[in-house]
Amino acid sequence: MENNNKVLKEKATIIVHSGDFDKLYSALIIGNGALSMGMEATIFFTFWGLLRLKKGGLTKGGLSKMNLFGLGKLLINFLMKRKNVAPLEKLISDFKELGGKILACEMTMGIMGIKKKDLRQDLVDDYVGVGTYIQEAKESKITLFI
């Protein structure tokens, strides 16, 4: 067995503020990468990012650039399939399987009118505030705002 105390000490903390499809890809790829390289990883969802945690919402985001009313996304989806890129659903379930933590920002849930029951309970580990994020981030070697 590996020495978890030593290996899992380093941490990556990622804020997902954007609800864009491509940015969620980046966040989940980096999160999975961190876990795969032996780090701990936490993703903190806030503002538009929260929409992606809603039931049926994971893949609903548009592209951050050249969305072209959804046409750009269709093209990206086609290219991703052709290049055999993993779907978001696989990436997020891998993230959880490898021990990644998903936190939802409670305050912005209030602003956006999102209730706990609207979010996927299978994904969200906890509903927290900025203090929890800072606590996690100050112990992290990698922090990103996406």
Partner: peptide
């Protein structure tokens, strides 16, 4: 492709 091989190795 990235990141699946790394992820599967980690599993």
């Amino acid at each position: 492709v990235c990141p699946v091989p790394l992820v599967e190795v980690r599993k």
